[in-house]
Write a protein that binds this DNA or RNA. Structure first.
Length: 884
RNA sequence: GGGGGUAUGGCGGAAUCGGUAGACGCAGCGCACUUAAAAUGCGCAGGCGGCAACGCUGUGGGGGUUCAAGUCCCCCUACCCCCACCA
């Protein structure tokens, strides 16, 4: 008897990873049978080290890719690097390293860690956004936007990050007014900036959310809210002079409550409104200027405070209410946003909370024009009535409902030339300018004579200059490179200046999924043929943090490129899976607030501060360095192997939920893989091999026929086949679109448990069917172990011509309905809806038989006490409910 | 303030169209193996009562529909996420 072998993942994983690469098992089949399938993970920023969030993301996508391969699809499963961005530049500033080399060495380090996970990635299509063979096409695409009139420059009040010395998009500023990267309090500045006109596509981006039924509802709702469509009216208030005579100037306000127009007691502009300066009266000059300064200096924190007061000043002008001719004052206030609607609103204190507060503050009149339906009188002392109702004090519109009045007043405005219906979006145009070095240069040249001139396509890429000095202060390093900045105009040849802004890195990531379809194309970013062949992405996997920005921008790109004829589909990602985050066990001293590393906690069942001995709070939280709760993937792989890490991550929680990393559970997962190893090893020892049921051996079908003629299957065989084919059915369902990897893994465990019980009592052909099936079902989850056991079970030398080859080129099994059929099934007996027992009944019994069996059962006798039930419900295959 | 989501044993989580709640695993307990421990194997396990058969109870709380509710409807509570002075 030979010594049983032991499962040593470290010995087999590296071996198979090399084999798969050498045999090009993960190469993308451009041609051949099978429909294309595109599995994509959100590509990482090359920070230099892989964290558990990455691991979870890529393992999920890898399982999807591997399952689809086994099902005969031609799979594209690529990977790349979102490689522009601030950390590289910060490293340059702090340590004087070259951002390009820093990034490349990080990529090399992460690539090595990725390889240890056994991911079936086609590295032939790897792309790196900071390499010029990629970003030349980012520039090329920018020029497409420019040509389409969708890229433009304008002066804008921008978010200025005083630490990173750069402009941030609204989306990169958090709720407290801090930079998403540096954490600095953001200030305001006015600069000439490049924008992409995403608002031109607002309606389409909203409408087409309906097409995305493979996306989580949550993400679709978030995008819809972000786009924020609202229907209302633009109404014009005529500015009057000191004597009350109309001037030519008009103030246009946007409102969703045209029905409240007669209740307007003032009109208020954003402090940044362009007409503020010209309309301010001489007397009000000083307070208005002072107020605008105050607002400009106001920190984001002050402006977003919970109970922020509304402040404003009158500018000394009046406007005429177009509905009733009344003259009302013009104010400016900090609660009016300059970049939404028209930057001006009518103040209706009786029917808007904010206006009400403002009116209270400055003693402005509160005029009630809407009463709740059926109410004759209502006090306006307590607050604004903001619901719909019936109009009063509104001249000809009295008695109309809010809904009717909105239409009627808007129609009157249109007829009278003082307003119109208006659809307003919350979505703002996308500010893409960054005053940074480490980004994709915007390929335009500024010429005094010709204006903005695009760099001719044949001159792309505009390469980022190397050997740049980084001071970390002031303007972008690019602006200081005279040789680079000064060029001649491509149009007229006169001296001109390069644009020194680079693009928001979201530009680079808005089209990378297209490039993978044709990653080595030197003529175009991608050919129409390749992109239409592989896209849309069948399954996209990534973090929920990209629910709005990256996914919205990518959808926008796709629609613009479709309209330019570069591709032939409407949406880039058919299905989206947003995986939950990975949390680590976290200890905190509730007295001091200090976080304690798990390694310093002596007894996890009674965690105490290693210094003070105080008891600690224990909880799970997103892994982060500052909380010492991170788990290093490399350490886990070294100890347990990639297969255990993969299985654990998939089993521990459903993919979209947060996952609590627990060492004890990892240990348990490792034990399961060891059990599988022993199970197959013992089978091989007994002489079982994949040759049973294959080649000249009778097939499973033959064996079933032989057995049928010879007294049928043994109990063990029936149980075994039932378990095998139940597992096939269940796991196939779990992996069919709505991914439930956790239950799929548990089905593998059930199958393995059943095999441990029934393998020995079964004939080799059936035992072998079970082993073969188990390994193929396991292969997407634990690819190395499955491959190794597959080889051992072949019972042949690898060079033998009959060898069946890699497990990863096998076909996914299909369930044999015959194996799922049972002679008898348990029937639940309920009395008045309560379960009172079980009855083993023939599986094919009809309703009448089931009723008869139930009524004759001991259970019925005992609970009905001889009385006939008043009602009997029979659910074949499930239960009989007897109601006395 | 608006929108979305979640709530099931000690823990992570299962449960198709309303049909045996707690699959699978972790932790725990018992037994076997061992000089012992580890490892491994077998078994127990929602709660309460009972020696047991068994009974009662049980999916955040309250009501409802139904022969039957974790699942459907109404109300409430707690927590999480996104947006937020968007007129």
């Amino acid at each position: 008897m030979t010594e049983p072998s032991r499962y040593r993942p470290q010995e087999i994983e590296r071996h198979w990873q090399r084999q798969w690469q050498d045999q090009k098992l993960t190469a993308t089949p451009e041609e051949g049978d099978g429909e294309p399938f595109y599995a994509l993970s959100m590509f990482p920023y090359p920070s230099g080290s892989l964290h558990m969030g990455h691991v979870r993301n890529y393992v999920i996508t890898d399982v999807v890719a591997r399952v689809q391969r086994l099902r005969g699809r031609r799979v594209l499963h690529p990977m790349g690097w979102d490689a522009f961005g601030l950390p590289a530049e910060n490293a340059a500033i702090e340590r004087g390293v070259d951002p390009a080399s820093w990034t490349d060495s990080n990529i090399a380090a992460m690539r090595q860690q990725l390889d240890q996970l056994g991911l079936s990635i086609d590295w032939e299509r790897e792309l790196t956004t900071c390499h010029s063979d990629y970003y030349r096409w980012t520039q090329w695409l920018f020029l497409q936007f420019l040509e389409a009139g969708l890229a433009y420059q304008k002066d804008a009040t921008v978010n200025w990050d005083p630490i990173d010395q750069t402009v941030l998009a609204n989306e990169q500023v958090d709720g407290e007014g801090r930079s998403w990267r540096s954490g600095a309090l953001v200030e305001k500045r006015k600069l000439r900036q490049w924008f992409l006109s995403i608002t031109s596509y607002a309606q389409q981006l909203l409408d087409d959310l309906r097409l995305l039924d493979g996306w989580p509802e949550r993400v679709r709702t978030m995008q819809a809210n972000w786009i924020g469509r609202s229907t209302g009216a633009e109404l014009q208030f005529t500015v009057v002079d000191a004597a009350g005579h109309d001037t030519a100037e008009r103030i246009t306000v946007f409102t969703t409550r045209a029905d409240t127009l007669f209740g307007a007691s003032y009109v208020v502009l954003a402090p940044e409104h362009p007409l503020v300066e010209s309309l301010t009266s001489p007397e009000q000059q000083q307070p208005v200027v002072a107020f605008c300064d105050l607002v400009a200096r106001q920190s984001e924190q002050e402006r977003t405070a919970e109970d922020r007061p509304k402040r404003g000043v009158p500018i000394g002008a009046r406007v005429r209410n177009p509905a009733n001719g009344e003259l009302i004052p013009l104010w400016i206030a900090d609660y009016v946003l300059a970049d939404y609607g028209t930057g001006a609103v009518m103040g209706v204190p009786a029917h808007d909370e904010r206006d009400f507060q403002f009116a209270r503050q400055y003693d402005l009149p509160v005029r009630q024009v809407i009463l709740p339906d059926g109410v004759i009188e209502q006090s306006v002392e307590a607050g604004a009535w903001t619901e719909a109702g019936v109009l009063v004090h509104s001249g000809p519109f009295d008695g109309l409902s809010s809904v009717e009045a909105k239409q009627a007043i808007t129609a009157a405005a249109e007829a009278g030339g003082w307003g119109r219906e208006k659809v307003q979006f919350r979505l703002r145009d996308w500010l893409i300018s960054r005053q940074r070095y480490w980004g994709c240069p915007i390929p335009v040249i500024h010429c005094d004579r010709c204006g903005v001139v695009p760099v001719p396509a044949e001159q792309l890429p505009v390469e980022l200059p190397r050997d740049v000095a980084f001071s970390g202060k002031g303007a972008s390093p690019l602006a200081q490179l005279e040789n680079w900045v000064n060029v001649s105009c491509p149009c007229c040849g006169a001296p001109a200046r390069r644009e020194t802004d680079t693009m928001d890195t979201f530009m680079c990531s808005s089209w990378y999924y297209l490039r993978y379809s044709d990653a080595r194309n030197r003529e175009l970013p991608f050919s129409r043929e390749a992109v239409d062949h592989w896209l849309p992405v069948d399954q996209y996997v990534g973090g929920i943090e990209h629910a709005i920005l990256h996914l919205l921008y990518s959808r926008f790109f796709t629609k613009v490129l479709r309209d330019r004829g570069l591709l032939g589909f409407d949406e880039p990602f058919s299905r989206l899976l947003t995986q939950g985050m990975v949390q680590g066990i976290t200890y905190r001293n509730p007295e001091t607030g200090k976080y304690i590393a798990p390694a310093d906690v002596a007894d996890p069942s009674d965690p105490r501060d290693p210094v003070t001995g105080e008891p600690l709070d224990t909880f799970f939280e997103k892994m982060s360095k500052s909380k010492y709760n991170g788990v290093d993937p490399a350490a886990v792989i070294e100890r347990y192997g990639a297969d255990t890490a993969r299985m654990f991550i998939l089993f521990k929680a459903p993919p979209e939920k947060d996952l609590e990393w627990d060492d004890a559970d990892v240990e348990g997962q490792f034990r399961f893989l060891q059990r599988l190893w022993r199970l197959v090893d013992a089978a091989a020892e007994r002489g079982l091999s994949l040759s049973h049921g294959a080649g000249t051996d009778p097939s499973v079908a033959d064996a079933l026929a032989i057995a049928a003629a010879d007294g049928g299957l043994s109990t063990a065989e029936r149980e075994l086949r039932l378990a095998v084919h139940t597992a096939i059915t269940a796991i196939s369902e779990d992996l069919d679109g709505d991914y439930q990897f956790n239950t799929a893994v548990s089905e593998l465990m059930k199958l393995s448990n059943a095999m441990a019980a029934h393998l020995e009592g079964s004939r080799p052909v059936f035992a072998c069917e079970a082993l073969r099936t188990l390994l193929i079902l396991l292969a997407p989850f634990a690819p190395h172990l499955a491959e190794e056991l597959w080889l051992r079970l072949e019972g042949r030398q690898p060079e033998d011509p009959l060898a069946t080859g890699s497990i990863h080129v096998q076909r996914w099994p299909s369930a044999d309905p015959g194996a799922l059929v049972r002679d008898t099934v348990p029937l639940v007996i309920q009395i008045k809806g309560k379960v009172r027992g079980n009855l083993e009944v023939p599986a094919d019994a009809d309703k009448a038989t089931l009723e008869k069996l139930a009524l004759e059962s001991e259970i019925a006798e005992r609970w009905l006490e001889g009385k006939a039930p008043s009602r009997v419900i029979v659910v074949p295959g499930k239960l009989v409910n007897l109601v006395p």
